[in-house]
Design a binder for these strands. Structure first.
Lengths: 78, 78
DNA sequence: TGAGTCAACGGACTTTAAGTGTCATTTTTG
DNA sequence: CAAAAATGACACTTAAAGTCCGTTGACTCA
């Protein structure tokens, strides 16, 4: 397990989504339903396998009841 | 001229990029060079015609010498 | 005037994201 | 434990992202 692995932007976004989703205590399927995105697509995004576009990311962010401003307001994005 | 037009996420991002680019006093072509993105693509993004992906947006943000955190830290994204 | 810079735009083209299905694996819970 | 629920992995199609060529019009300035 390499603790020094550098996360790319896709990984950072995936980790952020997973964190906010867990805060809401909802499943990937539920988030998919709220943002009108396939469950497996959510899986891929959370695991940094998708280069998501801003329009789809907006749907996820709304599904998480947050905003772009808050979503990117963490140390990871500075 | 409709002052009440609602901006979508693509428009908001385009306006934000143009503002930051103008602050730097550089041309679209220069920003394209710095972020390794085609000049015509920068035009399209600034005018809200492109649904940019997060990896390409990251290159633009770096070309503007800023961060995701700062880029989205405006009233428009709240 | 005319040369240079810049932004907007069109079209043809290549590459990749969006969206979904399927099955495997892990985690939770009764 | 077994069953159910949640997640992971990945291949596939098609819709759209992103590139590259060019033209045009506005503006500056020598």
């Amino acid at each position: 397990m390499n603790l020094y692995r550098v996360m790319n932007i896709k990984n950072k976004i995936g980790v952020r989504i997973k964190l906010l989703r867990n805060d809401l205590k909802i499943s990937q399927e539920e988030l998919g339903f709220r943002s009108n995105i396939d469950r497996t697509y959510i899986t891929d995004v959370e695991n940094g396998r998708r280069n998501i576009s801003v329009e789809v990311l907006e749907r996820v962010i709304k599904g998480l009841n947050t905003t772009f401003n808050d979503f990117f307001n963490t140390q990871d994005f500075k």
